[in-house]
Amino acid sequence: MPDNAEAPVSRIQHFSTADGPGIRTTVFLKGCPMRCLWCHNPETQTAEPVLVYYRRACRGCGLCAAVCPNGAHFMTADGLHGYDRSKCGACGRCVRSCTGNALFLSGRLMTAAEVFEDCMKDAELYAAEPGGVTISGGEPALRPEFTAGLASMLKDAGINVILDTAGCVPADNFAVLLPYIDEFYYDIKACDAAELREWTGGDIGLVSSNLVFLKEHGARVRIRVPVVPGLNGGREYAGRLKAYLERLGCGGLPVDLLPFHRFGFAKYEGLGRTNPCPELAPCPQSVIDGMKDVIGPARTPP
């Protein structure tokens, strides 16, 4: 696998604790074919670099305005910070000079080898509390060359690799990835073609066939369901989900139910974008517990 394949990386999260067992590093790639209404990481949807600006953390020091080559950052007459996204070239200079940690650049082109090197800094920790690297996004399966390149290097180094995917990519991509991935975390967001299209823009045909492909090729797969009250939450939906998986012959796979949270909301503001679904409410534990009952406790981790 080539280790010079490049991909736009949103961020590399060290000491990540919720993306698989043990101590892990999660690599978030940019670019996603889906547009989930509840997206937690809207900054990863596009492949292009984008500046995230958290207005409330701004100290008004004006250093961004001093370094910005395009005048995207400016100070108003009364000393307040202003930002004109249309002028922003996403060069990231302002990020390094920000005194309030108010700016974040999502999207730096990195080679698989560079990402590998960064992940390996924590190799000692992956061994201590058995963990590894989770490649997430965005949709990492959109970039099979890069992802397989990174995963093969990790595999050679004896590091466990989880791929976090929503499955909405051409089947060939999974054929490339299959030999290098220890476990697939496979998102099932809906179990009906119309719902999936409406909520995420995804194609359920691809999602279903890729899941079956992985299953048939002996891949280790764990189903992940982001539970969004009002959409796919509740016992009734859990029953449909179960039936859907059984129809695909995947009824025996472990299922994680992930409660929706509103952590992505601030990012829409930071991106200067309109939140497509501001009315979504966080998922209470009771909904998760009810769904666990239906799906069966043996298949859900504590």
Binding site: Q13, Y54, A57, G100, N101, R262, A266, E269
Partner: peptide, 27 residues
């Protein structure tokens, strides 16, 4: 300004979080 909270699988500066999120964490 230096308060870091582990939000779910990641850490964030508390002040960069939206009020809605802060309330969620509080809850």
């Amino acid at each position: 300004n230096d308060l870091v909270v582990r939000v779910s699988g990641f850490s964030a500066y508390y002040n960069t979080l939206d009020d809605a999120v802060k309330f969620d964490i509080l809850a």
